[in-house]
């Protein structure tokens, strides 16, 4: 059993995600690229935040840092009171497994596992046997129950993304990070997927952070954070405050 030994900051209970002076620099010398430039951000529990902005503005980088799958050059990321930079690799992995769900643009399903197995994989990694009823419910909710034994290549793009969402949610994470979840989907399917995320956000009160190019889809989120040149240029959440 891996235990978290990271420092827990004393914050308000409603703060799910917090970043301070978050900076990410790629390369060095003349190839130096400041992808994120001192981002301070707080996302509350149960919020559905959409991060929008042009290509290369740092929105995906921000999401990766929030999920602990990339390391910041400067600054800290605190999720549920745990400073991710204070965790060793394996405890960080376990933390991610239990508290953060990921949805990728390219679905990233394991091609040799069927739908059921792909969905229950994070549980298996945690040594937990999946509850059949729960999995069935999840698949039904996402409309893919009939495809439970299909392999990824036998599914449409939308169906694959639903499987990816189901996989992200199966561990009941408090935070779901979605990186361009509609990037490979047509507009109708994209709408379906985002509606699904909205519904889950409402029903399960999960905090969702979604990166998207689409202004239209971003409007469906409860909060929109606009980025440019590695900085937050506008934040509807801050404005409403």
């Amino acid at each position: 059993m891996i235990c978290y030994t990271g420092s827990i900051t004393q914050k308000g209970e409603s703060d799910m995600i917090e970043t301070k002076n978050l900076t990410k620099i790629y390369g060095s010398d003349e190839n130096r690229l400041r992808a994120l430039d001192g981002v301070d951000l707080t996302i509350s529990r149960g919020e559905f935040a959409a991060i929008v902005g042009p290509s290369g503005c740092g929105k995906s980088t921000l999401l990766h840092l929030l999920g602990g799958i990339d390391t910041p050059t400067e600054g800290i990321v605190v999720i549920e009171g745990v400073d991710l930079s204070s965790l060793a690799p394996d405890p960080l992995t376990v933390f991610r497994r239990r508290h953060i769900g990921f949805v990728f643009q390219s679905f990233n399903l394991l091609p040799r596992l069927n739908v059921w197995e792909n969905v229950t994989l994070p549980l298996g990694l945690d040594g937990i046997k999946a509850d059949k009823y729960e999995v069935e419910t999840m698949l039904s909710t996402l409309g893919i129950a009939e495809k439970r034994f299909a392999l990824p290549h036998q599914l449409s793009g939308g169906q694959q993304q639903r499987v990816a969402i189901a996989r992200a949610l199966i561990t009941k994470p408090h935070v779901v990070l979605a990186d361009e979840p509609t990037g490979n989907l047509d507009s109708k399917t994209s709408l379906d997927v985002v509606l699904t995320l909205c519904r889950l956000n409402e029903e399960l009160s999960q905090t969702i952070v979604m990166v998207t190019h689409s202004e239209e889809l971003a409007q469906m989120a409860s909060r929109r954070i606009r980025m440019g040149d590695g900085r937050i240029v506008s934040d509807s959440g801050e404005a409403s405050k």
């Binding site: 999920g67 799958i69 690799p89 394996d90 992995t93 376990v94 991610r96 497994r97 994070p122 996989r167």
Partner: peptide, 16 residues
């Protein structure tokens, strides 16, 4: 490597 990376992101530790 992609699969390994994905499993890492999904929570497979180095030990696992």
């Amino acid at each position: 490597i992609k699969t390994q990376g994905l499993l890492w992101v999904l929570g497979m530790t180095e030990k696992q």
